[in-house]
Design a protein around this nucleic acid. Structure first.
Lengths: 152, 152
DNA sequence: AGCAATTACTTGGCCAGCCACATAACCGTG
DNA sequence: CACGGTTATGTGGCTGGCCAAGTAATTGCT
């Protein structure tokens, strides 16, 4: 019972690249979400945690710059993670506007599980590709990303 | 004023491919959303419309199979598009469970604008790539997608 | 010093997307 | 023909994500 082979809409015929990105993104996100659910995390949260693994005590806006999302998204997401006991947020000493984000022990404990999930996702994604093909893909993906982000 | 070059978290060092997909997906989606907003559409809606451009009068579940989303997502999305006057939904004759979805004139009128937006997105994405590189990328992307979707 | 920008963050509102549950209509078997 | 199972869809509830508007603290300029 393979998937019913979703037909490519004719309107997308002249957008092969975009359509491929679309499908890939959905599959990748879906797979990632499935693995994350086992850790009681939601997609996106792991990215914030990963930044904190590298450097704890970041400011909310520093965090923002790392992940490149909207500030309101990060704000709400952090709040939920705080409620879940993964991190704390306290106003900074020198500037009481900024919120310093710190991992709790419970948050730090997710480091290895997240790394494992990340490896698992990578393994599944790259299952049928040679190292060279992975390299090619990553390079092209970066160039496309650059084209999309520069010159808004 | 280029982006501050978001640092790759060390946890993702062994997930280059996944991280690249991640970034690409976000950039691509963001760019697409920006263009769609000009048409008063939200990301995802254009995919449903495109399927209807190809074949009007599809059943909601046929539509579902094409886009591969959750049925509740499609249900709500169609309802909003119905409220926006882009399509109609009526129970089928032979089976009063199924809802037949049909474009209105207003919905049909979006065909060219959507095609244009699709071309624009494609052009931006592929701006710095040769035809051969696009081809390579699309092929690799499809293989990765296949790896992610088969063997759930 | 004082008052306007700027910065950091929060909140509300909206839509996409998922899961889980509920409902209605059809189908098949005893 | 009645009843359980399946199918098609709807709804509630949660999160991610965006924009826009609001608040609070700091900076800058006069």
């Amino acid at each position: 019972m393979t998937a019913p082979e979703p037909p490519v809409p004719s309107t997308a015929r002249h957008g092969r690249l975009s359509y491929a990105v679309f499908q890939l993104a959905r599959a990748h996100r879906g797979q990632g979400a499935a693995i994350l659910r086992e850790l009681d995390l939601h997609p996106g949260q792991e990215l914030l945690l990963m930044q904190l693994f590298d450097q704890d005590g970041l400011t909310q806006s520093e965090l923002l710059g790392c992940v490149g999302l909207d500030h309101s998204t990060v704000s709400k997401s952090l709040r939920r993670m705080q409620d879940a006991g993964l991190l704390t947020r306290e106003p900074a000493e020198h500037d009481r506007r900024v919120m310093v984000v710190r991992l709790t022990d419970k948050g730090r404990a997710l480091r290895e599980p997240i790394a494992r999930m990340w490896r698992e996702l990578e393994e599944t994604s790259a299952r049928d590709l040679t190292d060279e093909e992975i390299d090619t893909f990553v390079r092209l993906a970066h160039r496309i990303t650059a084209s999309l982000t520069t010159r808004a």
